[in-house]
C-alpha cells in the first residue's frame, strides 16, 4: 500500500501530455445589461494569461484568447466572472494537442493541469480540439445536474481535477 502514491505519480507522468490552450468560449449567466457585459469583459482582460476578449453581446458569449506559452488556469476565468457579479454558464476550451489519448476513468495531465474526461474512451486528440468543462462552477445549476453524479464518484483527490467532456 505504501507504494500506492508512487504508483499514482508514475501513472500521472505516464499520462502527462504537452498541449497549449489557445482560447476559450465562455457563456455568462444572469446577464441582461450592457454595463454587466462590459464589467465581465474588463475583468477577464485583467487576467495575466489573457491576451484579448471579444464579446458577442447578443448571445452573451465571450471569446477569450490566451497569450502564447502561458499557463492557463480555468479557475481564474470563473473567478473573474464571479467578481464581476455573475456566473459561468458554459466554458469551452480550445487547445492544440499532439496525439493525446484520453483514458477511460482516469485522470490525465495536460500541460500543468489535471483533467478527467467523463466520456474518455481511448479517443485521440490531435491538432486543434475543443472540449467543455463540466465542474459545478462552469455550469448553471440546471446544466450541472447531468454531471453531478459522475463527478461525485471521482471526488476525493486532493489535487485540482478539471472534469470535462468532449
Amino acid at each position: 500500500m505504501k507504494r500506492l502514491p508512487t504508483l499514482i505519480c508514475l501513472c500521472w507522468f505516464a499520462l502527462q501530455a504537452s498541449a497549449q490552450f489557445t482560447s476559450a468560449s465562455l457563456e455568462a449567466s444572469g446577464v441582461t445589461c450592457s454595463l454587466c457585459s462590459k464589467a465581465i469583459q474588463k475583468t477577464l482582460e485583467k487576467i495575466p494569461f489573457v491576451r484579448q476578449v471579444t464579446v458577442d453581446v447578443k448571445t452573451q458569449v465571450y471569446h477569450v484568447n490566451f497569450k502564447g506559452n502561458s499557463v492557463v488556469h480555468f479557475d481564474e476565468i470563473q473567478k473573474a466572472v464571479e467578481d464581476a457579479g455573475f456566473s459561468v454558464a458554459s466554458l469551452k476550451v480550445t487547445g492544440n494537442f499532439d496525439k493525446l489519448q484520453l483514458p477511460k476513468n482516469e485522470n490525465i495531465r495536460i500541460g500543468d493541469q489535471t483533467f478527467h474526461f467523463l466520456n474518455g474512451n481511448g479517443q485521440i486528440l490531435d491538432g486543434e480540439k475543443t472540449f467543455t468543462l463540466v465542474d459545478k462552477i462552469f455550469l448553471t445549476p440546471k446544466a450541472f445536474k447531468k454531471y453531478s453524479e459522475s463527478i461525485r464518484q471521482n471526488a476525493g483527490s486532493n489535487i485540482r481535477v478539471y472534469h470535462a467532456i468532449i
Binding site: 449567466s29 444572469g30 446577464v31 441582461t32 452573451q60 457579479g85 455573475f86 454558464a89 448553471t140
Partner: peptide
Amino acid sequence: YRFLSKDELHKH
C-alpha cells in the same frame, strides 16, 4: 451584501 444568487442563462 448579496447572500444568494441563482443564475441561469438570461435570468437570475
